[in-house]
Amino acid sequence: MIPSQIYVIAGAGLVSVGVFAWVVRRHLVRRMMGVNILSTGVFMMLIGGARRVEGGPDGVPQAMVLTGIVVAVSATALGLALIQRIYDQRGERSVEERGPM
């Protein structure tokens, strides 16, 4: 097995874990973490797929992941700000696994 396939398979595993956490978990921060794991898996698969035998790695997936990481960070920050706002509105910041979310 060549190393890039390990990254692709691990990335697919992260996608599975991320989707599961995103759908099943009720706490918003955990959901946000699930989405982050999902996007990390996608980035890993893109980078793993960018390998090629001669002439160095493919530049296009790298460029996509480079911007994608920064956009994912900012989207996460906005999501966390919204989650903070939701807790402020409810008057609690509990991390219980309950609630209408």
Binding site: I9, V15, S16, F20, V24, M45, G49
Partner: peptide, 16 residues
Amino acid sequence: VALASLGLGGLVAAGA
């Protein structure tokens, strides 16, 4: 959901 997400991951890996 666990089964579905495992299936999704498998499909994605197979495609990639």
